[in-house]
């Protein structure tokens, strides 16, 4: 059965973000946040979640190789800055050690008596908002495919790579569907790479998560991203339902106006069949 390989320190999996940093990401969303700021926030929170999930009393464990391909007016390259910018993929503990900075934030936590109290917490930041120039989505997907081919060849028996692509959907260097179709076929012995497209949008349309058809999607961009997304492997449908999604065997790993929570859910559904150990 595919997607069943254990994720371990000796047999890590791969988590690759592909991030749109084009000029259109300057557009403001409901609430006044720019799309670029939303993407940076999603990335920072997702990395934080991934790292804390893989950290035990003895430290952060290298269960994943993680990378970011960023694309925009400056071309296509690593989305990390500083020490991490030298290459695309890094073992998770390297990312844990190298945030750009650590901010003090305040979060609300249960007070044990039914209420909430504010608690100061340290929050690492790897990404700041960026938005400039065009949207070379095809080139970005080619770069992602190169990275995945190399990683999959080096890890033939590992849980296949997971790609999270965050964009507002308007490619300026051609049709990305053919290259994403090839990307989804890159595989290890445990299955094909899983591509989750997260479409952010400033319109007032309702969010659509893990749809089975294009019908409820508002425009050509979201429909194209739906077609570019991986389908649910049958054995993961139950895991999605457990998390409250009306998923079927026809559902795609696609989220229109999805937030950080949907990415976390996607990650947890996608790795449900495996065990991190």
């Amino acid at each position: 059965m595919p997607y069943a390989a254990e994720i371990s320190r000796a047999n890590p999996s791969c988590f690759l973000f592909v991030i749109d940093q084009s000029g259109s990401m300057d557009e403001r969303m409901e609430g006044g946040t720019s799309k670029a700021a939303f993407v940076a926030d999603v990335l920072n929170k997702t990395l934080y979640n991934l790292i804390t999930r893989c950290t035990k009393a003895d430290g952060c464990r290298p269960y994943f190789d993680v990378g970011v391909v960023a694309y925009g007016g400056n071309g296509v390259g690593s989305g990390f800055e500083g020490t991490l910018s030298s290459r695309i993929l890094h073992p998770l503990p390297e990312i844990e050690k190298n945030p750009l900075r650590i901010e003090e934030r305040v979060k609300k936590v249960p007070d044990g008596a039914g209420g909430l109290v504010e608690q100061s917490t340290k929050f690492p930041v790897w990404f700041d908002p960026k938005n400039t120039g065009g949207t070379p989505m095809c080139e970005a997907m080619r770069k992602a495919a190169e990275v995945l081919v190399e990683w999959s060849d080096a890890h033939p028996n590992c849980y296949p790579a997971t790609v999270i692509h965050v964009t507002d959907g308007q490619s300026t260097d051609g049709d990305p569907e053919p290259i994403t179709a090839q990307l989804r076929q890159i595989s290890t012995n445990d299955g094909q790479a899983l591509l989750f497209n997260l479409h952010i949008d400033a319109t007032a349309s309702a969010p659509v998560i893990f749809p089975a058809t294009e019908g409820a999607l508002p425009d050509q961009y979201s429909k194209a991203l739906f077609r570019m997304s991986s389908g649910f492997p049958p054995h993961l449908v139950g895991a999605a339902k457990e998390r409250g999604y009306a998923a079927t065997g026809e559902s795609r790993f696609f989220g229109y106006k999805a937030g950080y929570e949907a990415i976390v859910d996607f990650f947890e559904i996608g790795t449900r069949a495996s065990q991190m150990r």
């Binding site: 804390t52 999930r53 950290t55 952060c60 844990e96 650590i102 690492p124």
Partner: peptide, 10 residues
């Protein structure tokens, strides 16, 4: 550390 504290809080 921040990462262990985050894991502890989970």
């Amino acid at each position: 550390s921040w990462s262990k504290r985050g894991a502890f809080d989970r």
